[in-house]
Computed example of a mutant assay.
Amino acid sequence: MNLPDLRVFTVVARHDSLHAAAAELHLTPSAVSKALKRLEEDLGLALFDRSTRQLVLNESGTMLLARARVLLDLAEQARIDLQGERAAMDCRIGGPAVLLWRHGGGIAEALQPYPGARLHLQPLFEGDALAALARGELQAALVTDEALDSPHWSPQWEATALGELALGVIAASSHPLAGKRRKPVDLKEVLAHPFASPARSLFCGQARGSRSDGWRDDLLPRTIRYWADDLQVLLGLVRAGRALAYLPAFAAQEYGLVGIKVANLGFSSVERLRLVWNPARAPQWLRSVATSLGGAVS
Rank of each mutant, 00 (worst) to 15 (best):
A22C: 00
G116R: 06
R86D: 11
R38Q: 06
P194F: 06
E109S: 12
R79M: 06
R216S: 12
K261R: 15
D213H: 13
A147V: 04
L39C: 01
W277R: 07
A252K: 07
R200L: 07
I107D: 00
E59S: 04
W101A: 12
F48V: 10
S298P: 04
P29S: 07
H175S: 08
S269T: 13
P115M: 14
P151N: 03
F195E: 02
P248R: 13
L265V: 05
R50S: 01
W285N: 03
A134C: 04
A22F: 04
Y255G: 00
Q112F: 14
L27M: 15
L65R: 00
V32A: 08
L142V: 12
C204Q: 09
K37L: 15
A140N: 03
R7N: 07
V70H: 03
A87T: 08
P4C: 03
Q206W: 02
A35F: 06
R79F: 10
L71N: 01
P248Q: 01
R208G: 04
V56D: 00
G116H: 00
W153I: 07
D218T: 14
G294E: 13
A228N: 06
H103E: 08
A31K: 14
L47H: 00
P4L: 05
D186G: 15
P184L: 13
K37E: 15
P279N: 13
A296V: 05
G205N: 12
